[in-house]
């Protein structure tokens, strides 16, 4: 009895030593590692016009130059819109890996806008089990046009500073499903302190759909659509419709490519919106894809590491 036990134990011992020499690292067992967050769900912090799941990293300054030419339907005379342009110049900065802030100035209604974005949830590859990323974006904009040029101008109306303000709040929810595919949903509300027409509501509830598909390591195709829930924006009158069958408020639809070249990301796209901040592209898009009123445009993002956060050693 004892003999057989000894024999089996010896055998066990012999095989275990043999095995150990085959794979030394197995002796250490599985490593305990912290959560590993999903990265690079989009090439940059914007899909096209709207915010993506990504944040500027801690200590990184992102200089963004956005450009929208005129519309393609202007034909050869205006070189298919390339004779005109709208520009937004912006500076974004990552206060931490989860909080970023940014400001921008657009030629469109001479608007200054600013935002803060906070990552509430971060999708994990391993270590925490979180399936999605969620970010909250709060932004505001102010038009600095002279009072005679604001859209709601009338001689008898007092020009209050607060009338020029608008806000947008969005929850960016999404998931990087695979190395190539990311999808996101962006419910939000734009609040305008003053609107041009009685029929318009000050709060405009909207929902954004966006996605990207990587074509190669450095090139991706992005698409984005902002749906404005009905009965919030003014519909055109019959007279206006007679003049232009496609008149009226339009949902913003954009499609384009991201090309990453190291420190730069170039976003080249077609979009029916002119403005490049939330109030403008969600509530003030009137151009129609059906009428070929589509802008060719690009965003250029260049990042600079301004501050190097101390990384824990060991």
């Amino acid at each position: 009895m004892i003999r057989t036990s000894c024999l089996s134990i010896l055998l066990l011992f012999a095989t275990s030593t043999l095995f150990a020499q085959e794979d030394l690292l197995k002796l250490l067992g599985e490593e305990e590692s912290g959560p590993e967050y999903t990265s690079a769900s989009f090439k940059t912090t914007r899909v096209i016009n709207g915010h993506s799941l990504e944040n500027t990293a801690h200590g990184v300054l992102d200089v963004r130059i956005n450009h929208r030419f005129g519309t393609l339907d202007e034909g050869l005379g205006n070189f298919f819109g390339l004779d005109q342009s709208e520009v937004r110049i912006g500076f974004d900065y990552g206060l931490t890996d989860r909080i970023m802030v940014g400001i921008g100035r657009s030629g469109y209604q001479k608007t200054v806008d600013g935002f803060a974005k906070y990552k509430l949830l971060r999708q994990c590859e391993s270590g925490c089990g979180m399936p999605i990323t969620a970010a909250f974006v709060a932004s505001s904009s102010i038009t600095t046009l002279e009072k005679e040029f604001v859209p709601w101008y009338s001689a008898e109306r007092q020009d209050y500073f607060t009338h020029r303000l608008a806000y947008s709040f969005q929850l960016v929810l999404g998931r990087k499903f695979s190395e190539r595919l990311t999808l996101q949903l962006t419910p939000g509300v734009v609040h305008r302190n003053l609107v041009e027409y009685n029929e318009e509501s000050n709060d405009v509830v909207n929902i954004g759909f966006a996605g990207r598909m990587k074509l190669s390591k450095r090139v991706a195709v992005n698409a984005e659509y902002f749906y404005v829930l009905p009965n919030q924006l003014r519909e055109p009158t019959p007279a206006e419709l007679a003049a232009d069958p496609n008149a009226g408020p339009r949902n913003c639809l954009s499609i384009g490519f991201d090309i990453e070249t190291g420190g730069h990301v170039f976003q080249l796209h077609f979009t029916n919106s002119t403005g490049m901040f939330e109030r403008a592209f969600i509530t003030e898009t009137t151009n129609s894809w059906l009428d070929r009123e589509v802008h060719y445009g690009f965003n250029i993002s260049r990042v600079f590491t301004v501050h190097e956060p101390k990384k824990p050693k060991g």
Binding site: Q21, L24, E31, S39, V60, G263, K311
Partner: peptide, 24 residues
């Protein structure tokens, strides 16, 4: 006998974007 295992995502760069590109 000697063995190493090196987790690639544990490489830390001074520039966050470099780290992202290194991995991606």
């Amino acid at each position: 006998a000697i063995e190493f295992a090196v987790l690639i995502k544990a490489f830390e760069f001074e520039k966050a974007l470099m780290q992202e590109h290194f991995n991606e």
